[in-house]
Design a protein around this nucleic acid. Structure first.
Length: 673
DNA sequence: TTTAGGG
DNA sequence: CCCTAAA
């Protein structure tokens, strides 16, 4: 067997019938010798988004027009809290379960199993804010009781006016306002009393629950994208004016709400997207959808009213039915993103794709005491540790982390030697964009070892003890959860154009030991490489080595623990449109060249010849691109949009198009005679 | 699956 | 970029 062929068998193409093509097709090395250069970027250093400030925060948009913004904000908070609690309830050690005191979420005895929230008002705040919202209707059915909580006993609860925070009611904004919410629900609370050292006991909503109360702790920064529903009603300019920002405050155990009204930079953002982890803030609309869904989280339960789970894979949206049939769905209305996305990279430098998890670029600027050098922005992370020795305000419970840059795994760029420096820049930018755009996860390395347990606190993990954090590393890792298909996809996986690193169908089911997949990256890498990889542990894959053998390790228990959330998110996101990836000049060049040789109508061959490395370009894409190219070439330069193409290239397009049209006509004539 | 073409 | 009929 030809080595060249065997090297390539990891791609979607295999089988003896295609051997010939494979041999004929120029592989990467050949391309290099044929006027093409290959640039390998190993460990490309991408600074944290320049505007990133000192803290990474969750942002909760507040709709201006929706009336009760307090209610809305609180709704979101409770929803957040609920998600966090749900995620972490099993992971809080016994000795840490009695720590915080401000927000009390309790499972109630009544049939609705609702949660009680007590939120206190801080007395030092002149402006009393009273949140008396009941029956918050999230998927978990929380309810909130008015404050019966002694504020002294919950010193970290620094709830200031919501109005101040969000400036929704037109009052003066106070960027420094904070809302503190405790991270823990303790058993003590359910018994009615909380004692804080040196302060008087406070009365807590008593509930004689037979079942133990929910316990859990907020983990470090858990963020997710907010549904776009939030923004649809507002004008673009004001879209992001009203934010409530959730973040761990310096007092820890609190969540900070910061008004973002003052920040013009947000106005140009297109989408609320802040994700480090996996819970969702849910809008009314999203809630509504959830309510309509079966409450069961069991795999295989279809969230789709049609009886099929909708998902997408590699650009194709389909309905999957339980009997294995697939059918195409035309429900555009189900798309989450109804707003227009503009230039992706400009606006969301650090966000992932619609499908992946996202890393927000819109960090908070409020805290500008230092860090004038934005390129070295740090991310401040509150530990949210439920410390057994709870001294509110104690700085020891905070960990400051400075992230100078993220290391992006290797990118491969191919560009003609005749290309300009400018196009090289653009190409690299595109590669970076693509890598980032498809959703990277942040990985944490502690002393070279991957920290996988997302539910553990920093204290437990040892990060908090690591005074200088020299041994703490952050990495961007591919976060393509498609690799671990949610069960709704497992019955029938679409593999043809799947990424080269997907688990093969044989491993469907609940196997935790996916097979080892080896891959020669050199020729296979494309801009997509990074994002095609599953979320796997760092020590099992060397992304920086293009020749490395990729092995997909067993999925960690921690990863599995969040699968249900993934699943929910997935199934909703499957119906999203593919991310738009405009063709670069070099890509157009390659396309034209291929069509010159092969003619129109052989798009599969064109794909194999010129875009085999680019998994995100399907032959349909190429055909479509050619269509638009021909159109572009015909219209006046003034009418053209996007990156300007050299006239020479467009002339070639027209010439090629004319030539092959003629050929086609000839053939038709011959066959007719 | 691939092609072709409308949306 | 999506969708889909038809091959």
């Amino acid at each position: 067997m030809l080595p060249r062929v065997s090297d390539r068998t990891e791609t979607d193409r295999s089988g003896a019938t295609k051997t010939e093509e494979l041999v004929q097709k120029p592989i990467f090395k050949d391309m290099v010798s044929q006027t093409r250069l290959e640039y390998g970027f190993s460990g490309y250093q991408v600074p944290v988004f320049p505007r990133a400030s000192r803290s990474a925060r969750v942002r909760v948009p507040i709709r201006k027009k929706s009336g009760n913004s307090q209610k809305r904000a609180f709704e979101i908070l409770v929803s957040v809290a609920g998600e966090l609690l749900r995620e972490s309830r099993a992971s809080v050690p016994e000795d840490q379960q009695n720590a915080s005191k401000n927000l009390v979420l309790k499972e109630q005895e009544d049939e609705r199993q609702s949660l009680k929230c007590n939120i206190s008002d801080q007395e030092t705040c002149d402006e009393k804010t009273f949140i008396s919202y009941h029956q918050i209707d999230t998927s978990n059915k929380f309810s909130c009781a008015p404050d019966r909580f002694n504020s002294k006993a919950c010193a970290s609860a620094t709830l200031k006016s919501f109005d101040q925070l969000a400036n929704v009611s037109g009052r003066n904004a106070n960027p420094n306002a904070e809302l503190g919410i405790s991270s823990l629900v303790s058993r003590e609370f359910s018994e009615g009393k909380v004692e804080d050292a040196g302060t008087e006991p406070s009365i807590i909503q008593t509930s004689r629950s037979e079942t133990p109360p929910l316990t859990g702790s907020f983990d470090v920064l858990q963020m997710d994208r907010s549904p776009s529903d939030f923004f649809c009603s507002d004008s673009k300019a004001s879209m992001f004016k009203d934010w409530i920002t959730l973040c761990p405050s310096r007092h820890s155990d609190t969540i900070e709400l910061v008004n973002r009204d003052d920040d013009k930079n947000y106005n140009r953002c297109t989408q609320a997207a802040t994700t480090l982890k996996t819970f969702r803030l849910q809008s009314n609309a999203a809630d509504q959808r959830i309510k309509n869904l079966p409450s069961s989280r069991h795999w295989g339960v279809s969230p789709n009213l049609n009886g099929g789970a909708s998902f997408r894979n590699d650009g194709k949206r389909r309905m999957m039915f339980h009997d294995g049939r697939t059918s195409y769905s035309r429900q555009r209305s189900k798309r989450i993103s109804s707003f227009k996305r503009k230039d992706f990279f400009n606006q969301r430098p650090f966000t992932g794709s619609d499908r992946g998890f996202q890393f927000d670029n819109r960090f908070n600027h409020a805290d500008k005491r230092s860090d004038g050098d934005n390129s070295n922005a740090a991310i401040r992370v509150g530990t949210s540790i439920a410390s057994p020795h709870l001294h509110l305000g104690s700085r020891e419970r905070n960990v400051k982390l400075r992230i100078k840059s993220f290391k992006v795994p290797e990118l491969l760029v191919e560009i003609p030697t005749t290309a300009t420096v400018g196009s090289l820049k653009r190409t690299v930018m595109e590669a970076v964009t693509t890598a980032l755009g498809d959703g990277l996860h942040v990985g944490i390395l502690l002393q070279g070892k991957k920290v996988r347990e997302d539910s553990k606190t920093l204290l437990q993990t040892g990060i908090s003890r690591d005074g200088k954090h020299r041994n703490l590393g952050f990495m961007l890792e591919p976060g393509h959860p498609q690799i671990i298909p949610p069960p709704c996809m497992r019955e029938q996986r679409i593999t043809r154009n799947a990424t080269p690193f997907t688990i093969e169908p044989g491993t469907s089911g609940v196997s935790h030991v996916p097979p080892v997949t080896s891959c020669k990256n050199g020729a296979e890498s494309d801009f997509h490489l990074v994002s095609s990889l599953p979320n796997i542990s760092a020590n099992s894959i060397t992304l920086l080595n293009s020749q490395s053998v990729l092995s997909i390790p067993a999925i960690s228990v921690g990863a599995l623990a969040v699968v249900p959330i993934h699943h929910r998110a997935r199934c909703r996101e499957f119906v999203q449109r593919r991310i738009r990836r405009p063709f670069s000049v070099s890509e157009v060049e390659a396309l034209v060249q291929a069509v010159e040789k092969l003619g129109t109508g052989r798009w599969r061959d064109v794909k194999l010849r010129a875009f085999d490395n680019a998994k995100h370009r399907t032959y349909v894409d190429l055909k479509d691109k050619w269509k638009t190219l021909v159109h572009t070439a015909r219209i006046s330069p003034q009418q053209r949009r996007g990156e300007p193409l050299p006239q020479e290239l467009l002339d070639r397009v027209l010439a090629v198009h004319a030539y092959w049209s003629q050929q086609q006509a000839k053939q038709l004539l011959e066959s007719g005679v």
